[in-house]
Structure formats: C-alpha cells, structure tokens
Design a protein around this nucleic acid. Structure first.
Length: 702
RNA sequence: GGCUAGGUAGCUCAGACGGUUAGAGCGCGGCACUCAUAAUGCUGAGGUCGGCGGUUCGAUUCCGCCCCUAGCCA
C-alpha cells in the first residue's frame, strides 16, 4: 500500500555555512526519501533555514546589514550547497516567512485557548547599555564553581559545570562589555506538565511502532523523573523573530517557530501548486490527527528533547497530528576526533565539492550509517580506500570490463535472453537485493551496502569464471559470449538500481550508459534484454589522495573558533570541538609510567577537616562531605566510599587528605569540589588517609 | 555520580533466543588472470569476542561487579 510521508531534516541555522556534519543528516534523509519513493510511496521532502534568534540579530548588526539581508544571503548558499550534494528538497524555505508566522500564531493561539500557557516574571541579566536582555551565551564571567575566567553564562568549559548566568562572578555583556544588571520581565511558558501522560504514551507507542529508537525513549525517561517543568517560550525585545500576538515587545523563542517551520515549508509547497498532485487543501488534510499520513523527522542527537517532548506537546496541545517518526543520528567525527578548524577537518560542504565528488561522501556515509545514534567517523584513508574499491573497483568495473566486448562484437546490443547455463542467477541476485528495501526503510544503510557489495562480488566472480576475453578469441563461442556479457551487464544494472538512492548522480550516468530509465525498485525484477546500450565512458573516477589533502589544507585556519559537530546550531551550542581536541591529545600523551616532579607539583593536596559527612539520598555509593579547608573556605566533595563507611557521621572531625585543585564536577546531587584520598581496591576495602591531630585545616600536603 | 549507549581481527563493523573450526569489507602476504579506471578471481596470515567472578554439561553470547570510551543531566 503506497503511503504518503512528509520528511524533514533539522533546520540548519542561518548563521554559517553547511559543513560535513550537516551532511550526515541531509544525506541520511535524502537517501531515505529516494528509497521510499523507489519503493512506490509518495514523499514530500522539505527543509528550511532556521533564521531567528539573538545571534543572527547581532551578527547582522555587526555586518551593518538587516537580519533579513543576512539570512537571505546564507539561504542562497545553503540551497546551492545542498543541491550540489544531490540533496533534493521539494521545497527549502526559511522560518522567517509569513506562512511560518501564521502557523506559529495558529498553534500558539490554540495552546492559549486550551489553557496550556502561563506567564510569570523571570529575573534575567540585562545589558543596561544595549538595553537588552542577554541570552546565556552573551554573558561571560568567572565560573562560580572553579573560578575560571571568561566563561559563558550557561556552562563552564573548564570544569563542565552548568549554572544560571546570575551566579557568574563579575559578569560582563559580550555585546557591549557593560556589567549586566538583574532585571525582571514577564515570560510566557508552555505547561509541559499538561502533556506528561500523553507524552509517555506517545513515546512508548512510537518505540513499538519503530518511530523512535529504543535508546532515545530510554533516555527520555529521565525527563519525567522529576516531573516536566514549564517551558519558557518568550524573549524580550530586541529580538529577531516573531512577536507574540497581543504582547508588544515579547517574541517567541526560536525553538517555538523552528519546528513549526517544517510545517510552514510544507504549507508553502502545498500552496505553490508546484508539486503535482499537491494542492492547498492537502495541507489541512495532512495536519488532521486522523489523516493516515506520516510525518518523519530526521535530527541529530543534540536536539532530541525539542523534537520528542516540546514539539509533540505543542502539536497535540493545538489539536494537530503528532510526528510518526523522529529518527536520531549521531555526530560526525573526522579521523577519530571532533572536527577541528586548526587541523583542517572542519570542512565546509562547498570546500568538499570543490575537491571531491559528492556521491563518494554519500556512499561512505551510507556504508557507515545504521539505525542507531552512534557517532560516525569519516576516516579519510578508509574513505579513499572504500570508495575506490567498492564503487570503482567492484561496481563500475563490471560495466567497464564488459561494455567493450558488447560493442565490438554485438553492436552494443544485449542478448534477447539470459544464458541458460546461468539459469536462475539473475533472479537469485534480484531476490537477494530486495531485502535492501526494508534495510533502507529501517535506515540500516550500512547493511544494505554490504548486501550490494556482496552481489557485486558475485558478478565479478561470474565474469572471471567465464572469462569473456577467452571466448572473444573463439568465433564459435559468440552466443556464449553474448550471454555472459548480457548477464554481467544486468548484474550491473541491478546493482545500480539499488545503489541509486545513495549515489544518484553516478547512477544517472550509469542509466544513461544503459539507455534505461528504471523508475523504481520493481524495475530490478526484470532484466534488460535485446536492448542497445551506449558506449561506455568512465562513470566515476577513483579518489586521488591528493584531492583529500588539498581539501584539508584549504580548510585549515589559524584561528580556532569554537564549532559544534552537531547538525543544528543553536540548541546547546557548547563550544565542544576544540575542547574535544585537547582531550584527545592528552589521552594519547599521558601514558608514561613515571611522572616528573613538575607533574606531581601540579596537584594541590590539602588537609580538610570533616565538618559534615552524610549519606546521599538516592545514591548507593556516595557520601557527601563538607570540609573545612582553611584559607580555601568550605568544600563540598562527593566520595564513592559509602560501602566502606556505613556510619558516615563518625567521620566528622577527621583530618582527611584531598585534592584541592581537581576540576569541580557537577553531579546530580550537587557540585563536587575535589577528591578525598583513600587507600584500597574499592568496595569494602577502602581506608581514608588522614593526618595526625595538629595538622591545620587547609594545610598543604607535600 | 546518575542515566543512555558502546568496548568482537591492523582499521570499520556484523553476529550469536548459550552449543561443533567467531564472520564480512578494507588493508597486508602468496598465486592466477590480463577484459577492465595498477581494476578482477583464488588463497593465506591475523582475534584469550574489555577484565574478574557467577549460573550452566557448556558463555564471547545470560547475571553481577569492575575498567575504558562517547553523549545527556532542561
């Protein structure tokens, strides 16, 4: 039964270029769309730029242009980059459109009407000079936990703590440098708690229907543990976005209108009449809860909760249909590490296109992509070898090694029947590859590629076994030769049909060579016989490692801006990439068995007098200590030694040894500001180190 | 620390509701072939299936603990 499916990719932020990280997602969804269409389903495929938010407003200001001009320019680049990668959206829009404004209002007003909205005052930091409230990322100051300077308002890159920007020490505005003041303002909230049981049911339902990965649902359970909090959806002017109706100077937070942008893009497609069979009326039909159509989102793992909690809640609260599938993928690493501008592994889509064939990357990514949310690594050496071996050496080679004979002896015409001696070979291969349809649908592209390559190996072995170059020397064996070539070329056609969703451009060239236009997977069931094909021209060239090197070289920048490997920009834009680099580098360089005195000196070991020691509710292993650390003040430390000290209160008064300059770590129960030393192997075998009475609190240990 | 995942050949990964010699691709060695873009075929070497315990006639597969990696903690 043909299905009707709306497919979306997460909206790229209109604040920078498309890079290879984005391509994991756009490739994944594009392959899915092409495969579902070839399986006979009707698919509407849309995306848009995510154009709102403070970052865009401020960047436009810096560049001296309007935000509209900024997003227009970026939008053009995005469209070209994606198109040139063979990612073909039915419509690629922007969230800054009338259609999106209307739809956002429609959903918002329904939420209000249904009583899912509340408002309350919120205290926030305000830039008195710029006269604006500051988002977390636009405030910097000293980390309240580890006291590192110049940390962002939401999280510390040094110690990893997360906190409220109000807690920053000596905060300053990134916009003006002014010292922010606290100011109160009325904010609007969506009462997520209203949807708690609905969401729980929906999540389990989706899990069973294959619409959500099991690990995603497992992970989301966390959100329900303490009850869902209301979601702050408003921002104060100045802001680049949609004004909240009836609330002057209040704007919707970008994450409200971003997912609505999926539907708005679809609405524009319907209204345009540009897609055959789709009219304005289809949009409302589609939104209806009982429409029988499907809505499938492809996203990265960083924006799970927006798509699986907030978005379905908004839709349901407004009386609209909910998503059918939310498919989550992992991040892209390059050569085993996060993409890095300094190493040249942060590659823009355009830069890639200037050096390499897009189908190559599509194939490599497909060969790595499974249905899980594991990160996938672009190993540049493996990329080169796999593409050369699979695509050129195995697949294209079948055509390349047979076409010459066919033209030389048979005028390029395939035989009218397959050879009797190879009876059943074609049907067997075709039947085997039919499994790919299900593999494509379940997004197990890696498994599909394995199957395809397996059949390519069969084809090459068949040619080797029958040695057409030997037959060619014997005029009495012409028919036999014709049969072998015909079967081999049909193997090639079969493989091409199943590879088409992954390497559309190369497949198109291959079909041109075959002078054939198979429209769907079903075409693979019948071989191409008695048909004249075109002379063979190289369909794909091998990767020259020099092209890869050149691409990396061009991508190198001396500056090291923070970048996220994620497919979308604003949700949690922690500058993780370079931090990751550092981690990877230390990991490989810190294995010497001995340490220098300098290394030892880095540890600030101190005496702490135990003031409070208690078991932590909800934890099997942890004890919470409060230590008097003398000049360092009071320190809270969590220590996993409960199994050895059943009566924590008895530890009060002890002089323990602790590491005072360990990066603080935020735990579920609070921040741990150090580590208490003990001897033993763990479990019951743990003994606190302590100092004789007389050692002062905070005394250094040498 | 909690949670979610992952740790299987040099690399990327598959797999086993527990059962004879643990698989594939790439890479590497040998042989063959010469139609083909130094492509292809055959063949070989390479793994204590993260560690320790437990259940079992039998565990890499189940259970427990531990170690390591990644991510999330609004």
């Amino acid at each position: 039964m043909p299905r009707e499916i709306l497919v979306t990719s997460a909206l790229p932020y209109a604040n920078g270029r498309i890079h290879l990280g984005h391509m994991v997602e756009h490739t994944q969804s594009d392959i899915w769309v092409r495969a579902m269409r070839m399986a006979g389903h009707t698919v509407h495929y849309v995306c848009a730029d995510d154009a709102h938010g403070t970052s865009i407003m401020l960047r436009a200001e810096r560049e001296g242009i309007t935000p509209e001009a900024l997003i227009e320019g970026v939008w053009k680049e995005h469209i070209a980059d994606l198109r040139d990668f063979g990612v073909v959206y039915d419509h690629y829009s922007s969230t800054h459109t009338e259609a999106n404004r209307e739809l956002t209002y429609r959903i918002w007003q329904a939420l209000e009407k249904n009583g899912h909205v509340e408002s309350k005052p919120v205290k926030q930091l305000f830039d008195p000079e710029r006269q604006m409230f500051l988002p977390d990322r636009f405030i910097k100051g000293e980390c309240p936990v580890c006291h590192s300077k110049d940390q962002y308002g939401d999280a510390c890159e040094v110690c990893g703590s997360t906190y409220n920007p109000i807690d920053l020490i000596d905060p300053y505005s990134v916009v003006s440098g002014a010292k922010p003041i606290e100011k109160e303002s009325l904010h609007f909230f969506v009462k997520l708690a209203d949807f708690e049981s609905l969401l729980k049911t929906w999540l389990e339902e989706r899990r069973h229907a294959g619409g959500l990965q099991s690990e995603v649902v497992n992970k989301l359970k966390e959100w329900f543990a303490d009850g869902l909090r209301s979601w702050d959806v408003s921002r104060d002017a100045p802001y680049f976005g949609f004004e909240i109706p009836g609330q002057p100077d209040k704007y919707f937070y970008v994450w409200v209108d971003a997912p609505v942008g999926y539907l708005a893009a679809f609405k524009e497609l319907c209204d345009s009449g540009g897609k055959p069979g789709l009219t304005a009326a289809d949009f409302d039909r589609f939104l209806d809860t009982g429409s029988g159509t499907e809505m499938v989102h492809f996203i990265g793992k960083d924006i799970i909760y927006f798509h699986t909690l907030f978005w379905p809640a908004m839709l349901h609260g407004a009386g609209l249909r909910m998503p059918t599938q939310v498919n989550v993928h992992g991040f892209l690493t390059v050569d085993g590490a996060k993409m890095s501008k300094s190493r040249g592994t942060f590659v823009n889509a355009r830069t890639y296109l200037e050096h390499l064939d897009p189908d190559w990357l599509r194939y490599y990514l497909a060969s790595m992509l499974g249905p899980t949310l594991t990160d996938i690594d672009l190993d540049l050496k493996a990329f080169e070898e796999r593409v050369n071996s699979h695509l050129v050496g195995k697949w294209v080679n079948i055509a390349s090694r047979c076409a010459g004979f066919l033209h030389k002896f048979f005028d390029g015409k395939l035989a009218a029947t397959l050879p009797e001696t190879a009876h059943g070979r074609y049907d067997a291969a075709a039947a085997k590859l039919e499994a790919c349809a299900a593999l494509y649908e379940s997004r197990d592209y890696a498994a599909a590629m394995r199957l395809i390559i397996e059949v390519a190996d069969e084809a090459n072995a068949y040619v080797a076994d029958h040695a057409p170059w030997v037959m060619a020397k014997d005029e009495s064996r012409r028919d036999e030769l014709h049969g072998v070539l015909t079967l081999a070329l049909n193997y090639f056609r079969l493989l091409t049909i199943w590879l088409a969703p992954v390497v559309p451009t190369t497949a198109a060239r291959a079909f041109e060579f075959l002078d054939d236009t198979p429209a769907d997977f079903a075409a693979a069931l019948r071989p191409l016989l008695g048909h004249a094909i075109n002379p063979f021209k190289a369909l794909a060239t091998r990767i020259d490692p020099k092209s890869i090197e050149a691409m990396i070289e061009v991508s190198k920048e001396s500056l090291q801006p923070s970048v996220s490997a994620s497919s979308s920009a604003h949700p949690n834009p922690l500058p993780q990439a370079e931090a990751g680099d550092q981690r990877a580098q230390t990991a490989t360089s810190t294995s010497p068995a001995t340490v220098s005195i300098d290394d030892f000196a880095k540890l600030d070991l101190r005496i702490g007098k135990v003031r409070v020691c208690e078991a932590v509710e909800g934890s099997d292993k942890l004890l919470r200590f409060e230590l008097d650390a003398g000049e360092l003040g009071t320190r809270q430390i969590f220590s996993g030694i409960k199994s050895a000290y059943a009566e924590p209160a008895k530890l009060v008064g002890r002089n323990v040894v602790f590491i005072a300059n360990l990066a603080p770590r935020k735990m579920r129960f609070g921040v741990s500001e150090g580590m208490i030393l003990s001897a033993g192997t763990g479990g019951n075998d743990l003994f606190l180190l302590d100092a004789d009475q007389g050692a002062g609190a905070g005394a250094p240990v040498r």
